[in-house]
């Protein structure tokens, strides 16, 4: 199973909220800081229709742009990252 990837910034509250949610849910994920890794910006812009926003979460092929906690949880269920 592909790892969940969360793209965000250290000072973004929504990034922090979703990171802590993933940790509470016990879902392993890779965090990519958008300020430290400008090389990912073009691909991310491509996937999000041109807008570099944060946080963006990659869940098994789905690209969630600034999801609410409920939207992120639903994607995790849909893609099999949560199953209990």
């Amino acid at each position: 199973m592909e790892p969940v990837v969360l793209y965000g910034t250290s000072w973004c509250a929504q990034t922090q909220l979703l990171r802590r949610l993933l940790e509470r849910l016990g879902v392993p994920y890779r965090y990519v800081d958008l300020e430290a890794h400008p090389e990912v910006h073009p691909t991310l812009r491509f996937l999000t229709g041109g807008r570099l926003s944060h946080p963006v979460v990659y869940v098994g092929g789905e690209v969630l742009v600034e999801p609410t906690p409920a939207e992120l949880e639903r994607a995790l269920w849909r893609r099999g990252y949560l199953w209990w």
């Binding site: 491509f46 041109g50 789905e62 690209v63 969630l64 742009v65 639903r74």
Partner: peptide, 18 residues
Amino acid sequence: EALSLLHAMLQELWREVG
């Protein structure tokens, strides 16, 4: 750009369907 927009539209559909 069109492919990028199509991809983003598909992702937004997930949000609405879910």
